[in-house]
Design a protein around this nucleic acid. Structure first.
Lengths: 146, 146
DNA sequence: TTAAAAAAGCAACATAGTTGCAAATGAAAA
DNA sequence: TTTTCATTTGCAACTATGTTGCTTTTTTAA
């Protein structure tokens, strides 16, 4: 029943957009599809490549920015210069991403995963520093590549 | 005795370059100065601005790349798209950065600090994943801004 | 001092990201 | 359904960022 499944995904996407007061447009649907169709995170470049034939570069930038603002996706820090985005699991309040999971980058398949079950550790800071948010990115080999 | 101090810094820089089999050039000295003159990390843009009047853009890129390759500086992951660099405290073997400190980004002064005394925590990963390197970036308010 | 090697500068190019505005599309009401 | 209004898209032009090949300059070491 692939038809049923795709209807479900359509509903999911429509609901997600509605809940965030966003109008339902082709580009938004397409980009959300990309995220929902796979586990890992997506680099901006990937998204542009896979949505870029149908949509303008500028639209991709603006759509991603909108999703980040609304808390639908979040960015993942990297040491190279490629921004990566992943779906927020729980809905994050507009602009406030309070996911506390860690990220894993496999340097074999080069995928980035949100490890939703691994909670960021408490970090003990030197005197005077106060923490607001902790990002952890682990790299190594993922379970599919070993 | 500012003269004495500046002589010391010159010696330090020269030694650092020699130890890494790098010839001593104006641009390398200038850029190392920038790092030694301050605590935090430097964004590529800052370095280019502060060294760019004397040196070509390309030279700045190549110099930073050389320093990373030699293990003199390391990159710090960020969620926005700005690469940040900081001096490696202990000499890292060529290309192998085995610093295990965490990074702190103050969102008031927007500086990035290496907290050399705070060691990255052990992260327990799900079955099948193997970790090679752990990056921790904390953001909040630094001790100078509170 | 000089010759070989390394680095810097320049130009040209490639990619990434931004802005303003006109045309197209979506939402909601008549 | 059709119309209206707000939102979103596409386009064009622009700025910023990063790269490459080649020539000239500087550094090193003999």
């Amino acid at each position: 029943m692939p038809k049923q499944a795709s209807v479900n995904i359509e509903n999911k996407i429509a609901g997600l957009l509605k809940r965030n007061n966003l109008s339902i447009t082709d580009s938004r649907k397409k980009i959300l599809h990309l995220f929902l169709e796979q586990t890992g995170a997506l680099a901006h470049g990937d998204i542009e490549k896979r949505a870029g034939e149908k949509f303008d570069r500028v639209t991709v930038y603006r759509t991603l920015q909108t999703f980040v603002d609304k808390g639908i996706i979040h960015t993942i820090p990297t040491a190279d210069n490629s921004i990566r985005y992943a779906l927020c699991k729980d809905e994050c309040a507009g602009g406030h991403h309070h996911d506390h999971h860690i990220h894993f980058v496999c340097h074999k398949c080069n995928n980035t995963y949100c490890l939703d079950d691994v909670v960021t550790p408490e970090i003990k800071l030197p005197k005077g520093y106060s923490a607001e948010h902790v990002e952890v990115v682990v790299d190594g080999i993922c379970k599919n590549c070993r």
